[in-house]
Design a protein around this nucleic acid. Structure first.
Lengths: 252, 252
DNA sequence: CCACAAAGGTCTGAAAACAGACGTTTGGCG
DNA sequence: CGCCAAACGTCTGTTTTCAGACCTTTGTGG
């Protein structure tokens, strides 16, 4: 009763505690490469304001992350909350993935990421923006395998940022976080990284060249690898082409 | 400092009270035509669970909506919480729209709605699903002008539901709600409705025919009307074509 | 007429979250 | 050396939210 898809707005206004949610968000940001090893989080008051929670609640979250070894806190001037690089929580259990959820993530991702790439290519980019994109690209290429995922995520979010559409950036970041959760459940093959790097390069070139259709196509192609992997390990193998959005890249 | 787009995951875990948020969500659902005049909301316990809040908090929200004349409550068996049709809160002030937000809504909408239409067309639809879509279409066509907006929203959400991707449905519903807020700020021209109805018919036909590219194109074309309207009244008139996503509908 | 089902109505004590003032540590600068 | 700035650290009282038991209303059906 009460199919949730029939009530898309009647859904949780919060997921669990403010405190747990804060832990998740910060961890997410680290796992997405938005805060890197050695970097400092914004001051507590600022972070609390960004999260819309009180400083007391934020501090609970920071303590949790601190005792998990994810963050280190330094007092005094030029102090702050620093990222260690560790990203595992002690109590993390990995429940089996729901195939419907896998499909949802993959489809939604195939909607928002290519669109973001297309918009990024269509936008007029400042020199600084171009440089930033290239920097993110280099960092993926130079990252060690264990740091690959965050660098990769950060690169893709950087692309989305160039779209100039904040809602789209949020959507990309969120779906990517969900995808990462799923990817954590399956083994990583180093062979794929090189292939991935090539695709990143293509995507970057298309964006910088202002070639929107090419950027869209490159993004889609890049997603297909992950999609196949996840569907193979976690889904029920529904791989017909006709549920892929944006299949207008082929001959019309 | 701390550009929000740089921290897409560090954003409010809640917007205001649970109670206010609940009021918003329910009102949203009514405005989106997901609950119609005379319909009954799910039982309090169920709604509270769906919203992830306690029943006490939900009841605060219901009381607010009740005293605003939006809801009517009937006790006893076959009782429940019923929608009156009124959708205005007493204290609603309309702050000027932020042009950046207008642009964000329009762009994001142009990303998710055409994608949803495309997926809906590509999906294999049950007879019931087809019938539901047609029913929603008819209800838009038959709606009185003052009920047009909710019927219209419901139709578009129905299309999104056919995509089979819950995240996409949520995204469509949310962005449509934001767009409605903006549309409330500008005058409505009855002339447009007929045009709109034609486009709805085209979209429906494409979806039912399984013609994904046509569905995408129809959806995009339909959005352009609203987009032009909103940009004209509220934006700063940036109307170059090259920031429209999915412009692959024209000759490549 | 009575029991039951299905809804809303009420109450209470506990837990979570908040706001905001105030304290402490540390490094730079004059 | 002493002051200041910019962080984190602590505390207190209040408000919000929760969980869950229990009550009341009302239509149906035996």
């Amino acid at each position: 009763m009460s199919d949730p898809v029939q009530h898309p707005r009647i859904r949780p206004v919060r997921q669990g505690n403010a405190f747990e949610e804060a832990v998740e968000r910060i961890l997410d940001s680290i796992r997405l490469g938005l805060f890197r090893r050695g970097e400092r989080l914004p001051p507590e008051r600022e972070t609390a304001a960004m999260l819309g929670i009180s400083r007391a609640t934020l501090r609970e979250a920071l303590h949790e992350l601190q005792s998990a070894g994810v963050l280190e806190v330094v007092r005094g001037r030029y102090g702050g909350t620093f990222v260690t690089g560790r990203t595992a929580l002690p109590d993390e259990t990995v429940p089996p993935a729901d195939p419907a959820d896998v499909e949802d993530v993959l489809v939604f991702r195939a909607v928002v990421e290519p669109a973001a790439a297309e918009l990024a290519a269509a936008a007029s980019l400042s020199a600084a923006a171009r440089e930033h994109l290239l920097a993110c690209l280099r960092q993926v290429e130079e990252s060690l395998p264990e740091d690959y995922r965050p660098a990769d995520a950060r690169f893709h979010i950087a692309v989305a940022e160039l779209s100039g559409c904040p809602s789209l950036v949020r959507a990309v970041a969120e779906v990517r976080s969900r995808a990462s959760d799923l990817l954590d459940r399956i083994p990583v093959l180093a062979v794929n990284l090189e292939h991935s790097d090539r695709q990143h390069r293509e995507l970057t070139d298309a964006v910088l060249a202002g070639d929107a259709p090419a950027a869209r196509a490159a993004s889609l192609a890049h997603l297909e690898g992950t999609a196949a992997l996840l569907r193979g390990f976690l889904g029920h193998g529904r791989r017909s082409d006709d549920d892929a959005p944006g299949d207008d890249r082929g001959p019309a």
